[in-house]
């Protein structure tokens, strides 16, 4: 289902992931979040931006376990746990946050 962002129509797959990574801009995350009744805070953005950095570096979307560990290393123990990440992204930090960040669905994520 395509989404409308800043007057542009962007292709997504059947689960709502962006078809072309290069189409991403911050407004994409805002639009996707609104569709799922999620209000993006600075805490959400911290994770979304980190996912984009991770993808840039390694060319994959990390598995949740890997993301959790990496967030803990970078942002501290109080954020590097699944309670915190699921609190921000109730549909699953892997699926939901990666989608907002314009990344593909994490490998190994069913």
């Amino acid at each position: 289902m395509p989404i409308e962002v800043n007057g542009k129509t962007l292709e997504t797959d059947e689960e709502g992931y962006l078809a072309d990574l290069n189409d991403w801009e911050p407004a994409v995350a805002e639009v996707m979040a609104k569709l799922e009744d999620c209000e993006l805070t600075d805490e959400h953005w911290e994770i979304i931006n980190y996912l984009r950095e991770y993808y840039e570096e390694y060319q994959i979307a990390p598995a949740v376990r890997v993301l959790t560990k990496a967030v803990g290393k970078k942002m501290g123990k109080d954020k590097g746990n699944s309670k915190y990440l699921y609190g921000l992204f109730p549909y699953g930090p892997g699926k939901q946050a990666c989608k907002y960040a314009g990344l593909p669905k994490p490998t190994g994520c069913v």
Binding site: E57, Y58, Q59, I60, P62, V66
Partner: peptide, 8 residues
């Protein structure tokens, strides 16, 4: 680049 993610 993904081989470098394996450690994680």
């Amino acid at each position: 680049r993904t081989y470098r993610a394996l450690e994680g």
